[in-house]
């Protein structure tokens, strides 16, 4: 297994032996760095470049300057998508307090609680495609439970996915289902690791219930909250699967978000507008970078301390 034995000439072998400590990391890194550069890092720059062209994906690229971006500015569908992205993000944040509530509810020592925790976590494990189908069925008029419930409440059968007023919210609810489960499991781990003596001390001081939560528990859960925030914001901005499965952006494009609109522009029956699609992707990247850089910055701080 000795690497040195693979070199036949003694000269090369001794160079290897002398510089092993310096060369080894390069060799260890090579496959990962090459793959990641080719498939992730370079494409980011290529996409930015492509966003300055009109391109159908096959023929020649025509320089477009900033026209893709100025077109975006005048495109109502873009603004609808952007608005929906903000709604997604705002409502997705509900997954954090709801996940915390579920975790507090389940952080007990009764028999069978482990099974309960796993079953509550279930929605996160299954594919978003399946979640989308489940909720499409749940919402379907004539078949699903929700229209049945609205009728029972005297509101008539409401087809939420066919109604421009409700559609985005209905899809977000489907997305919250696995996201709450995710936040729950993060908080359960966090609660598990809280210093028991501090809780006891606070109890002796008379701290209980919400005061305990606010002043003793939440500060200790900060790392968990941070992770929950990161995965939730990224999850909201990445939303694509549910929209594709449940509404295809409809009705009349009212449930599009940037990620879906980008796909529609670049690769669908509406034509292959790669340049325009790339411009949408760049806007999405800029929004996401605000959060990514915050996250990385904090991790960087941790590294310097640690």
């Amino acid at each position: 297994m000795n690497r040195a034995s693979t070199f036949s000439k003694p000269g090369v072998s001794s160079i290897w032996r002398r510089n092993q400590r310096r060369l080894a990391p390069l060799l260890f890194l090579a496959p990962g760095v090459v793959m990641f550069a080719v498939y992730v890092v370079l494409p980011i720059f290529q996409s930015v470049w492509i966003s300055f062209f009109h391109w159908d994906g096959m023929g020649p690229k025509d320089w477009a300057g900033l026209t893709n971006y100025t077109d975006l500015y005048d495109d109502p569908a873009f603004w609808t998508s952007l608005k929906n992205n903000l709604i997604w993000m705002a409502l997705y944040l509900l997954a954090i307090p709801l996940g915390l509530a579920a975790a507090i509810f389940l952080n007990q020592n009764v028999t069978g609680i482990r099974i309960y925790k796993s079953l509550f976590f279930f929605p996160f494990v299954i594919s978003q495609v399946v979640v989308g189908l489940i909720f499409s069925w749940f919402y379907a008029p004539g078949i699903g439970l929700l229209p049945e419930i609205t009728e029972w409440l005297g509101l008539g059968q409401i087809a939420v996915l066919a109604d421009e007023r409700y559609v985005t919210y209905a899809v977000i609810v489907a997305g919250l289902w696995p996201q709450i489960a995710y936040c729950m499991i993060i908080y359960l781990t966090g609660l598990n690791n809280i210093a028991a003596d501090q809780i006891e001390a606070a109890r002796l001081d008379g701290a209980r219930g919400l005061r305990m939560l606010r002043y003793v528990i939440l500060p200790q859960l900060r790392p968990a909250t941070f992770i929950a925030l990161v995965v939730t914001v990224i999850g909201a901005l990445r939303s694509f699967d549910l929209i594709s499965i449940m509404t295809s952006g409809g009705p009349y494009g009212s449930s599009r978000v940037l990620s879906y609109y980008m796909y529609e522009q670049a690769l669908s029956e509406y034509g292959y507008q790669m340049g325009y699609g790339a411009a949408i992707a760049v806007v999405l990247l800029v929004i996401m970078m605000l959060f990514i850089s915050g996250f990385v910055w904090r991790m960087f701080g941790d590294e310097k301390e640690g």
Partner: peptide, 10 residues
């Protein structure tokens, strides 16, 4: 953490 769409075309 980048959006998939920024990688899609390339």
């Amino acid at each position: 953490f980048v959006p998939f769409q920024i990688l899609m075309v390339p």
